[in-house]
Amino acid sequence: MAIQEIMIKVEDISKSFESKDATVNALNHVNLEIHKGEIYGVIGMSGAGKSTLVRCLNLLEKPTSGNVYIEGKNLMQLSEKELREVRTHIAMIFQHFNLLMQRTVLDNICFPLEIVGMKKKEAREKAKELLKIVDLEEKAKAYPAQLSGGQKQRVAIARALAMDPKILLCDEATSALDPTTTKSILALLKKINREFGITIVIITHEMTVVQEICSHVAIIDHGDLAETGTVEDVFSHPKTKAAKKLVFQGEDKEYSELSSKRCVRIVFKENPSAEPVIGNMILECKAPVNILQADTKDIGGIAHGQMILQLPDDEIIANRMIAYLQERKLEVEVLEDYVQ
């Protein structure tokens, strides 16, 4: 494919907040390029600065320094009126949905259309179309308080689509939802990306969300951009400490009492999911392994994901196991200090 058009370009932005006795640097010299049609994940621990970053993309937060370009237009140089115009093309959805509680579902979707002065009848027609897309036609006359979390987010998505945006920013959009609902919302976002070609930026602290739908990911750590790349690259070969911490989420506490220090991380990429690789390895080597972490899934009959295994203390057996796994075309990485 030819080089894709750059949709969002973040150039050396920093953002600091002044409080009474300290200056908090929420973002430090962040650079980012997001191409048209991508689903781009921004992940980080809470307080890492990811919410500030996404708010800099539509200037809800004004960076202390640096520039933000949307389709080549520098937002920092726009007048307030021009900025409002640009914002109509950058939709946003939120963790807490942020619907107008005193308006019906249909009128919520009409809201952005009212702002740009569309006629009421026309706006309602359009809103009805959008409700069809998010699969909530029967709730048109309901009020947000009568909806479940997932339904509220669907309304928020319909509202976001009302202005035919080029970009959709999602700020922890699934963090208040249960896993099943999260899945269905992510599927909806995927569909929107595919059918309307909308560039999507997803802010999350959940690894699974990024794995599920993003093509690219940026890892933010204490206001610094730690790592960027395709989801596959970053997840299978995390380079920085922050990235590793996220990929091996929650490691140190839970496994620290185990004795063996021989841990390996294996990455599944091309093995048929029908093949019981680990089971066969145990049978072949006649020794048990401890699965410390496993996150694999079946995508079209191919196993994807990773596992962390604790191998037996016996070096010969352990090496045989590693050789066995490598033979099966799995990537094996010995983790030196995975267990302290």
């Binding site: 809800l60 914002r87 939709a91 807490h96 509680m101 702002i115």
Partner: peptide
């Protein structure tokens, strides 16, 4: 709710629209 105001801002609503609507 501050979040609802923020949502309206993100849609490009003017101050007048936010006050009124």
């Amino acid at each position: 709710d501050q979040g609802v105001i923020e949502a309206a801002q993100s849609m490009g609503a003017s101050t007048w629209h936010i006050v009124w609507k």
